[in-house]
Structure formats: structure tokens, C-alpha cells
Design a protein around this nucleic acid. Structure first.
Lengths: 168, 168
DNA sequence: ATATGTGCAAACCGTTTGCAACACC
DNA sequence: GGTGTTGCAAACGGTTTGCACATAT
């Protein structure tokens, strides 16, 4: 197993806009107009939007959605394993499609940006540790919080929030 | 650096009941009756209680506390670096004293128990990964979710909750 | 036709806060 | 005695839900 590579995943890949909808149909979900709409927004997302943001993007395409439906849909898709919920701090849940592979997050604490990466060595290590402690690893969470070396301050932070960091 | 040891920390060590209070005084906090009380509860805790639980334990010792004060104190101590807040899922923040060393958590998804461990190899790896991605590591979070091998079912789960796992 | 999804607004739940009374230094 | 803390209850913010209506299958 290659343990020496961190693969920063460039989040530019927004394949086809029906990706998520197809997954919904596969799991036998009844496809309504608003579910199609939300599925499309999710398919096009290359970041980790929260519900409010999803709602905003959906509204921009079609005004016949309510935020309650976004909440319901997002929860449903999470239960179906189509979406993954993250808590990066800040009190709101943030979502991303599960269909683009296992990866971790590094949160830039100055800009709030999220960098995705994968690391086989860590993956193996997590499993090993669990086994050493007498467990079978079922899931794990790794998040790094970092800052670009001081010389290069880039985008200044957009504004504070109750707790934890805001992230992109 | 020794990278081959996972140290499961047995959470039986509840040293002296004034541990936290002493830290408070050191940081120049005005010690009121309720702060002393809450500090004592925290000093005696060997788990990761949420605010409600802290409040319950404090009440058992002295009824002259309100939950608002627990919230305020816990937040204050966190700002002073005396407490660490965790989000293990389930919507409520959970706390532990920072003074017993850096460690990670493995959550038993069947019983909800939290096992603490430290791992130097992981620590080094996290730093390396961040650097490889062009960041200085400021903080990180590692949580393992595991299950004891099937043969030995132990304590059955105590009951479900809205979201995420309940933990001890 | 019927079970299921939707919108609205109210309920919920953890947490924070304004204010007047109170306690520590 | 004055500044900082507490208790209460109300406010908050994200999320869920009851209900009447609408819609996919």
C-alpha cells in the first residue's frame, strides 16, 4: 500500500448535473420536482454547503421550494447514504455527496477554505490503532486545522461567527 | 519518537478534587461558590459529561447553581484553556479537562463508551500531511468509531438519540 | 386512487443573554 | 463599595414537525 502520498483533491470536478438524481432513483426514491431540483444543486456543488446555502442555490433555479423540504431531503439522502453530513464547527451541518471517494479535510483557519486530501498511511494507521485497542474499525474522522506560513496572508477572513470556524 | 505505542488511558484517575479550582486561580479567575462547585465536579469527572450532566452532578452537591451558570462557567474555562469542548455528535457539547494530556478518542458504537488513547505516530503524520499541503498544523481532530469483535457483546446500548452516538 | 411529499408556521432543543439582585475582592 | 457574577426567563438559531393541501406512481 502506498503510504507516502497525500492527494490534494481539486474540487473542480462537477460531472453531470444528474449524478445525484440517478442515485436517488436507484434507491427507489419518489422523484418530485423539488427533489430533482435539490439533487441538481447537490450534483453541481463542489464545496461543502450547509442547508441554508443549498436552499439559496435551489431558489435561484426555481422558487417553488421551501427550506423545510431542503432539510427533509438532505436528511433523507443522508439516510440513503447518498450524502455525508459534516460538522466543521459553527453549529450548522454541512453536506457533500459521498460518491466522490473517501477523503479527509484540512480546514484553513484563516480563510475558512476546506482542502480535501486522502492519505493511505493514515487510513492504515487508524485501522491498526483500533485493532490494537481490541476493536474493529467501523468509521473514523480526521480533520486538520492549519494555516498558511505567515509570509503569505491571502484572503482575509470574512467575519466571525459564534463558535468554530466558518468553512467553504 | 516512539511511533509504535497506542496508550489506552484508563480513565480511573480522579486525582485531587481541587485540581481545576487551582487552575482557575492560577489564571486569575474570581472564585465564587458556584465556580468552586463546578470546578470540583469537573475535577472529579473521569468521563466526558455534557452541560446537563455537569449541572445534575453539581446540583447533587449544592442546589444553589443554575444551568445558566454552568453554561457560562464551562465557556469561560474553555476560553482559559482549562476545558476542552468536544462534539461527538448528538448535538450537545461535551467537556473534559485539558490537563491530562493530548489524546484521541475511540468511540464504541455499540456501548457508547469512549476509550482514550494517544499515538505519537499519528501525531507526527498529521503534522507531515499538513506541511505537505503547504500548511502549518494548528490543531487536529481524530476520532475512531469501532466495535468489539462480534463474539463478545458486552453492555447493550442504552437507548437511541436523535443523531450521532451517545458516549460516556 | 392512494400513499407520499410539500409549504407554512409553530414547536423544539441546546445555548446565550438582558436585567435586577447579589457576592466577592 | 464597586465591579463582576448569578438566576430567571426570554431570546436565539438551527432543525424538526403537525397539519391541510398537492403530487407522483
Amino acid at each position: 500500500m502506498d503510504t507516502r502520498t497525500d492527494t490534494p483533491r481539486d474540487a473542480e470536478t462537477s460531472p453531470d448535473p444528474l449524478r445525484i438524481e440517478r442515485l436517488c432513483v436507484e434507491r427507489g426514491l419518489k422523484m418530485t420536482g423539488q427533489r430533482r431540483l435539490i439533487a441538481r444543486v447537490l450534483s453541481e456543488a463542489v464545496d461543502h454547503p450547509d442547508v441554508e446555502e443549498l436552499y439559496r442555490r435551489a431558489l435561484a433555479l426555481d422558487s417553488r421550494v421551501s427550506i423545510a423540504t431542503v432539510y427533509r431531503t438532505v436528511r433523507l439522502l443522508e439516510e440513503k447514504g447518498i450524502l455525508e453530513r459534516h460538522d466543521f464547527g459553527g453549529g450548522r451541518a454541512r453536506y457533500e455527496a459521498t460518491d466522490h471517494g473517501h477523503h479527509y479535510h484540512l480546514i484553513d483557519i484563516d480563510t475558512g477554505k476546506v482542502i480535501e486530501f486522502s492519505d493511505a498511511q493514515h487510513e492504515a494507521l487508524a485501522k491498526t490503532i483500533a485493532e490494537r485497542l481490541g476493536f474493529v474499525l467501523v468509521g473514523h474522522r480526521l480533520e486538520l486545522f492549519g494555516r498558511r506560513p505567515s509570509g503569505a496572508e491571502e484572503t482575509p477572513r470574512r467575519g466571525a461567527r459564534r463558535r468554530g470556524g466558518e468553512t467553504a
